[in-house]
Amino acid sequence: MVRSPDSIPVPSEIETSDHELMLAVRDGQVARLGELFERHHGPLYGFFVRLTGQRTLSEDLVQQVFYRILKYRHTYRDEGKFSAWMYHLGRRVAADHYRKHRTGETVDREEVNLEHIPDDAMDSGEQAEKNDDLALMQKAFAELPLDQREILTLHRFQHLPHSDIARLLDCSVGAAKVRLHRAVNALRDSYFRMRRHDGAR
């Protein structure tokens, strides 16, 4: 019987690594996938929301990734790195979704609206202060091309090292850094342009 834990597990000193967990799942302890889910579903969900701008769809995509992890667990390598593999499957799942729905890689930007997502991590006072900047940043980010949003998300929100990003995007580490550089510059230019046009400043 599998049950969802009621509380977030407290990290312990002797935490099993993702890799060890995934090897256990691969070698038959399928139920331990629950631990990997608890660790990674939040960030993975954030990845999809930033990519697609759609919350319900993003939940479905996370579900599909974990389904594929289970389905393809036998292909997980001894020397593998779990998070890189998970994002690899994540990109495939997203690509499959868009292929099925014939929208290619264009994302409906009207739906990109994170401003109304309640943020428990920030207090209301601070939020009011920062709201203008955050709203502009949200807009600037949403207007970037998909590939730039993706590389920024992988780097800045998912904290993947350059080498993992390069492997995911199937390019050299140098090329990944150049792409990241361009994405940051594009974001910066767009953000400050919007701020200049924002009359209040």
Binding site: V2, R3, S4, V30, A31, L33, G34, F37, H41, G42, Y45, G46, V49, R50, R55, S58, E59, V62, Q63, F66, Y67, L70, L114, E115, I117, P118, D119, A121, M122, K130, D133, L134, M137, Q138, F141, L152, R156, L187, Y191
Partner: peptide
């Protein structure tokens, strides 16, 4: 500012679906 964008959080539906699938 980018780092401070709100972190979207999934609904309980995701966890329920996952454990049902598992």
């Amino acid at each position: 500012t980018l780092d401070r964008l709100p972190q979207p959080a999934p609904s309980p539906r995701l966890r329920n679906n996952f454990y049902a699938m598992l």
